[in-house]
Write a protein that binds this DNA or RNA. Structure first.
Lengths: 244, 244
DNA sequence: TGCGCGGAAAATGTCAGACAATTAAATGTA
DNA sequence: TACATTTAATTGTCTGACATTTTCCGCGCA
């Protein structure tokens, strides 16, 4: 007398879904303890390994944490910003790398979103954000910096800009867009001249943010978007010529 | 002679991480088959259930899919936009519900991002997008619509707006911001007057998008943001008064 | 009475072995 | 050749056991 034999097999997925729904719909609150594996097994009429597979699925999504020992068990976990960042970045990166997303598409998305942050960042940036931006600009001017390091510094710069908006939800959403672009950016070879131009634009952006001039920040971000797009188009073209 | 007894216990997490890294770093490509569970068990020197728990973790993140039968097994999965949407929405919703995010913060993030899409949507919207927007506006004008349905329709309207930008990466990033707001929006009681105002603004936005007038779209989105913020503040205030 | 220590208990983590279910390829047959 | 049957490989599930970790409680001792 099985409840529903509709979806053929994969009991652990069904059980995971049932528990996940309970958490999402708020029927279980943070730090509440789930029944023990044995109890869940009895409740769902499956064996303990099956329940365990279900719990591991939830653990992979940071929905629960487990704790050994007496009065241990599985607990609904408070999803921290950091973990959410991490998951979002992983997903975004894979999405881009596995779906042959055009450089233009990713670039457009990233700068559109970043420009949305700029006015807020101009209002609210703290000395900390400005210091980070300046430090990264300085690093980007160092000769002998590898292309990878240059890109990594670029990401840090832009994250500081985004964080400057002082809205953690915005930072979270943007993290995916900014970080996921890095693998695509890494394919670009930055000549000395292009680095100079980028540093120039970064400086202009930092200046505008410091001066709380939203309009100037937007203008220069737009220029940077256009320049990055051109660089990327160039690199992609070379790349495709090589493989043809 | 264990390889690394550094992190005590949770072999399945370590194994999952090892495989996940291999996929993220591109050492395994889409549709490539992983070794069978028995082979992985031998390779990592653990039992099959432990390997299975690791694989379930990866399956929960849509990194692999499994297939039964001869020549079945676990395969690296192409992460589809839809699945990525789903994961992002789940994570975003939980992040907001579990971290006592202020209505203002979420609202600000959402409209900042949406306004970033508007100019692109004005350029590229198709008749389909316009039709969806008009249909939802019509629904929102129906009397007797529950607050929940009104909110759901609101989400559909805004997703059509975002999709109108014709950039799937942008749609993906925005999905989290727009959908995750719904539980917060659901706490608002929409009076007849507030619905009228929202419908009026939605109509103005749809008109602007249809006329490809980016500036008008932006202006009205800004107004909608301000109005939503005011409604939300009101609702939150009442809510906190009730519980005090 | 107060304190520390050790065992019991409860829970997750891991293992071993078995069987069921499913699927594609190989094989046999008309 | 075309179709049915067998077979082998692989995941899905179950049972039972043991290892490990952690908390709690009671006991002995000062």
């Amino acid at each position: 007398m099985k409840t529903e034999p509709k979806s053929p097999s994969d009991l652990s997925a069904q059980i995971a879904k049932a528990i996940r729904d309970a958490i999402i719909e708020g029927r279980m609150i943070v730090d509440e303890r789930l029944p023990s594996e044995a109890e869940l097994a009895a409740e769902f009429n499956v064996s303990r390994p099956t329940v365990r597979e279900a719990l591991k699925r939830l653990a992979a999504q940071s929905l629960i944490r487990t704790q050994r020992g007496a009065f241990g068990g599985a607990f609904v976990k408070r999803l921290s910003y950091e973990e959410a960042y991490g998951q979002h970045i992983t997903t975004s990166t894979l999405l881009l790398s596995m779906n042959a997303v055009r450089f233009e598409t990713a670039c457009e998305a990233r700068y559109a979103l970043e420009r949305a942050c700029a006015p807020l960042a101009a209002q609210r940036r703290t000395p900390d954000h400005l210091a980070t931006m300046r430090a990264e600009i300085h690093r980007q001017g160092q000769p002998g910096l590898s292309d990878e390091s240059f890109c990594a510094s670029d990401v840090t710069f832009h994250r500081a800009l985004v964080d400057g908006a002082g809205n953690p939800v915005l930072s979270y959403q943007l993290a995916g867009a900014v970080e996921a672009m890095q693998p695509l950016m890494n394919m670009i070879t930055f000549t000395e001249r292009s680095r100079e131009e980028i540093v120039r634009l970064h400086t202009a952006i930092a200046d505008a943010i410091e001066a709380q001039d939203a309009k100037a920040a937007d203008t220069n971000l737009e220029r940077l978007a256009a320049y990055t797009l051109a660089l990327g188009r160039d690199a992609m073209e070379k790349h495709s010529r090589k493989s043809t």
